[in-house]
Design a protein around this nucleic acid. Structure first.
Length: 603
RNA sequence: CGGACCGUAGCUCAGCUUGGCUAGAGCGCUUGCCUUGGGCGCAAGAGGUCGCAGGUUCAAAUCCUGUCGGUCCGACCA
């Protein structure tokens, strides 16, 4: 490829709106063009990167038994009604919808369980055809609350989604495991350091799932992990042991109604009590109450359930755990969870917000107290009376509301791992997710096969996704420096660039560059020759920014028959002109092998 | 959905407070010169109905109202 024909569009300055490296550099280097909020045009360079990612992903999923298909982006509402998810996706407003001229409603594919389940029901008739696995790499839409971070969180993106169908849970387990390996192999080949964590199943549903995370400061997910035990989970799901609170000497023997005027927050209450007779009481001795309305879809329709959640005062409620608990309790599917409005709080507690507790006067449908508070001893709890708290409140003795113990606390760094050791926390970018769906969709949609017992059975299903376009952004987050991008060889838009850096009309430089160019092309190396009429400095800056892994410069050494070879980010070295192509090819093979070996090391 | 801020050239931004000549700079782009090792230098040039619609005024990029779009924060811990 000749650089003069590439429409390179590098920018010298950072775009104003870019906050993270991938957004900034992909814009500056001319990979993405913003077409609208959360909408990006993939420029020629990125198109090549995306194609390479897609290809590697397809190879690995195929290797694990997947068959590639393409499904429509427009999905009929009727199909989503069958699975029961239309309401859920409308409630969370995740799905974009359109109407055709007849007024029929369609969703723009946020995922494709319904479509593929319908497909499988039509083509997979017998247990003899199982297991089966179909996948596609196609555009997905999500009506994001707030698109941001460039390619990271967008309205429209490319995703690989795979769906497997089984006659037994064991078969699902096998494919799930094969997919886990395929993912790790794919990420290794893509040059990404990714790891699997336990995850909540969210809107997809199912019995179990893992997310694949790329560790990055800018990641939107928090991961709780313990390298010693191998435990790793998304904070939405993570469980641990909360270390016991210290004892406090000033705790009264019986719950004591105490005036705490105009102090709503935990910190204020503690400050007030410290100054008024309870010098050693701390936040960890208080009972934090958070009141929610949890909307659950049940057989009898959608229900908004007033719910109280209690955790230790110095801790946070894990809303995902809580929402799941309420959904279980109400035997329905979680649609939405939101904090109560102030007037709802007054209705539920008979007090101004800030004084809710599990004692007399709390009227909610569900009440959960974090299991870590069992045997917690005396606490400070809201009295359900404006400007009053109960000091010395013992849950087991004094709680009047009908409550259930439940793990609803947000696990955090410093909590203990149930397998031993201490948990830590870091941030990650979710690039993949795998689910065991079970029969959730097949049962709802009557997708059945005929078994050897002459009976119809719903498919046991799994589903698997990789955010192809997000992978490109995540790769940048892991591979960049002050000069620009540093693509892994496997997904770089081009492998090598040749920069002629002689005086104009220097035929020796020109012919040397052409010679190497021809040789590399012949060897299958994706090579660019920078034939632009620009100063060498401009060219060097551009290619560093674009992030081409290998570079050959033909310039001042040409008189002695030497050219310069450099790996992006490394040192430049002189090589004889005659060896230049071989040097590039060798470096390419070595870099590729390194990634392939990492993939083969996956267990 | 709430709050804050921002819409001026392809990009990054001045100008707006206190209304007043022909609306500016740097980068990028075009042309010519220079001649080539890290965004080099010199010269000339193209490019903007100042987001849109109303209003106030002799006069609006500037003030007011509305509207559309964008960015950031908050999504709630009682």
């Amino acid at each position: 490829m000749r650089a003069s024909r590439m429409n390179l569009a590098t920018l010298r300055e950072d775009p104003a709106e870019a906050e993270i490296a991938s957004h900034r550099l992909l814009t500056r280097a001319g990979y993405i063009h913003k077409s609208g909020a959360g909408l990006y045009l993939y420029q020629p360079l990125l198109k090549r990167v995306i194609d390479k990612i897609s290809r590697i992903v397809a190879e690995e999923i195929s290797r694990a038994g997947g068959l590639e298909i393409t499904m429509p982006i427009l999905q009929e509402q009727e199909l989503w009604e069958k699975s029961g998810r239309w309401a859920q996706y409308q409630a969370s407003r995740t799905m974009l919808t359109v109407k055709d001229r007849n007024g029929q409603q369609f969703g723009l594919a946020p995922t494709a369980e319904e479509v593929v389940t319908d497909y499988a029901a039509n083509v997979v008739k017998s247990y003899k055809q199982l297991p089966a696995c179909f996948f596609q790499q196609h555009t997905k839409f999500r009506d994001e609350i707030r698109p941001r971070f460039g390619l990271m969180r967008v309205k429209e993106f490319i995703m690989m989604d795979a769906y497997s169908f089984h006659a037994s849970p064991e078969s699902l387990d096998e494919t799930y495991e094969a997919m886990r390996k395929a993912y790790l192999r794919a990420f290794a080949r893509l040059g990404l350091t990714a790891f699997a964590v336990e995850a909540d199943t969210g809107a997809i549903g199912g019995t179990g799932s893992h997310e694949f995370m790329v560790a990055a400061e800018v990641g939107e997910d928090a991961i709780i992990y313990n390298p010693a035990s191998g435990y790793a989970a998304n904070v939405e799901r993570a469980a641990g042991i909360v270390p016991k609170a210290s004892a406090w000497a000033s705790a009264p023997a019986a719950a004591q109604l105490t005036l705490t005027p105009k102090v709503g927050t935990i910190a204020d209450v503690m400050g007030f009590l410290n100054a008024n007779g309870f010098p050693d009481v701390k936040a960890e001795h208080s009972l934090k109450c958070v009141l929610f309305v949890v909307t659950v879809k049940t057989d009898k329709g959608d229900k908004g359930i007033p719910t109280a959640a209690f955790v230790r005062g110095d801790r946070d409620v894990n809303e995902v755990k809580l929402g799941n608990a309420v959904a279980r309790g109400a035997r329905g599917a979680l649609l939405e969870i939101r904090p109560m409005h102030p007037d709802e709080v007054r209705a539920a507690t008979g007090a101004e917000p800030g004084f809710a507790g599990p004692g007399e006067g709390l009227t909610v449908e569900f009440c959960y107290i974090d299991a870590a508070l069992k045997d917690a001893g005396p606490l400070v709890a809201g009295a359900n009376k404006t400007d009053h708290h109960l000091v010395g409140f013992v849950i087991e003795r004094d709680a009047k509301a009908k409550f259930r113990w439940e793990d609803i606390v947000r696990t955090q760094a410093g909590d203990l791992d149930t397998r031993g050791g201490v948990l830590a926390e870091k941030r990650g970018i979710e690039v993949g997710h795998i689910f065991k769906l079970g029969t959730k969709y097949s049962a709802a949609m009557k997708a059945e096969y005929l078994g050897p017992d002459q009976k119809l059975h719903p498919f046991i299903m799994g589903c698997y996704g990789i955010g192809t376009s997000r992978v490109a952004a995540a790769a940048v987050e892991q591979h960049w420096d002050a000069d620009g991008l540093r693509w892994p060889i496997s997904i770089a838009p081009y492998h090598c660039v040749i920069v002629p850096a002689g005086k104009p009309g220097d035929t020796a430089v020109e012919s040397a560059a052409q010679e190497i160019y021809a040789k590399l092309q012949k060897a299958g190396i994706e090579v660019v020759i920078d034939d632009r009429d620009a100063k060498p400095g401009v060219k060097f800056k551009d290619w560093d920014l674009v992030g081409i892994p290998l570079r050959v410069v033909c310039g001042r050494g040409i008189a002695e028959g030497k050219v310069e070879f450099k790996v992006r980010g490394g040192e430049s070295k002189d090589v004889p002109l005659a060896d230049a192509a071989a040097t590039v090819i060798e470096a390419f093979i070595k870099a590729t092998e390194t990634l392939d070996n990492a993939a083969d090391a996956v267990v």
